[in-house]
Design a protein around this nucleic acid. Structure first.
Lengths: 232, 232
DNA sequence: AGGGGTGATTGACATATATCAATCCAGGGC
DNA sequence: GCCCTGGATTGATATATGTCAATCACCCCT
């Protein structure tokens, strides 16, 4: 493991509060690797050997069934994944694939469980992280079951606008077909959904989005922190 | 709190391994209450004051948005709920409502967080429970995004058959309209879905289900532990 | 036994979403 | 500059699912 990566992950919420000794033990067996685009990091159903952390780049979590495939979420810098499987020593429920050249830290799941036993601050952080992830998935179920695809798109745009600073114009960092999959629709339908948001002041050219009538859009989207705010 | 309830919850995975002293502290401030049918126990968006445990009966977790409502899951004896919110001291993402006369234990969330700090065995159990719940919700997202409603129904029936002992004939313990909501469809559509499973050997009369051609049904349902097995 | 109420079912229809095929468009390699 | 490729878009159509209204079946109550 390169020395330059260690301080970077030390500041992540999951590791910030833990004892130096525990952190050292955790890091001792860690791997860091830079993967090319479209690399399968994890296969659904395989046993979980490592807790993964995205240092740089982005990773898609996806699931397959009966010949179909869906994107569960997209992870960026600082995100951890496969924590629940690592803790429970259970098979992965999702596959993971790099979306671009991506740098990943891999901590042996065995070590994670070990350190979890002896370091209370780490255990506390793991609980917080898991509870956070759990609530995130609950929110996405609510979105899927309570909203139409157009409403999901509208809320996605508003959320992303807020995340990028709140300007009327901003840029998506996701391919449209992947966005469609995240939102639970086909690429064709996403195109149509985008068009149908035009009366609400939305125009999308390539990756560039402009929201000219935010109030109209919000009236349609009806965003609520209980679905759309990642924190809280 | 009645003395008879204490040993009952002591044997739950969440409390089984913790120290006697911690358990006593947790239980000291606990309430036990029996609620009538259709009682709102928790309202979505409210702050989370208690960790709840179902002692007897059943509870529906549901969510609302834009005038719509959906059942997220149904909890029975031994299940805990609102653990993530209690741990994070965050607002409830779901409402809870009794489906019948139900006995519930309520542990002040403050106490849970307190004991969590001092008792490592409890912290470990909380992590295991949270990871378990997280994986459960992931499975349900996979079902929603990858399967049609007929496939979800077919898998629900197979899962329930296994849970009740595996006989060709078994009984559902859920109203059809609620089952429809759990599966993410309307009651009308559930009726039609049931009819469309007839060629696969499914007949449902009231709450009584008979699966006469299990292999045909499985060929349609394509169950997988990565979606349909609550453990693993 | 009769009535009232609630949930289940059915049919007709509307809407949402997926599928398939064709085309468009932009970026990369040569 | 030009071809090639993959993603995006569009149109036509099929399928899945929701909505509304009517009816049915059952249970409970008296």
């Amino acid at each position: 493991m390169r020395n330059t990566d260690i301080p970077a992950i030390r500041t992540l919420p999951l590791f910030k509060e833990m004892a130096d000794g525990s952190f050292a033990e955790l890091v001792r067996g860690a791997y860091v690797q830079t993967f090319p685009q479209n690399m399968e990091l994890i296969l659904e159903g395989d046993p979980c050997d490592f807790l993964h952390i995205v240092v740089d780049g982005s990773v898609e979590l996806l699931a397959n069934w009966g010949g179909r495939e869906t994107t569960m979420t997209i992870l960026r810098e600082g995100a951890t994944f496969i924590l629940a499987a690592a803790i429970r020593d259970a098979p992965n429920l999702m596959s993971a694939r790099t979306l671009e050249r991506t740098r990943v830290i891999m901590l042996p799941a065995e070590d994670v469980r070990q350190v979890f036993e002896i370091d209370h601050a780490f255990a506390r952080a793991v609980v917080m992280e898991l509870a956070y992830c759990y609530r995130g998935v609950i929110k996405s179920v609510k979105g899927l079951k309570l909203r139409t695809s157009i409403e999901r798109l509208a809320n996605y745009l508003l959320k992303w606008q807020k995340k990028t600073g709140g300007n009327a114009t901003f840029t998506l960092t996701i391919e449209k077909r992947r966005l469609a999959s995240v939102l639970g629709m086909t690429p064709e339908n996403l195109s149509r959904a985008i068009k149908s948001l035009r009366p609400y002041g939305v125009s999308i050219d390539g990756q560039v989005v402009e929201i000219s009538k935010p109030d109209d859009l919000k009236r349609l989207a009806k965003p609520t922190p209980l679905i759309d705010d990642p924190r809280s």
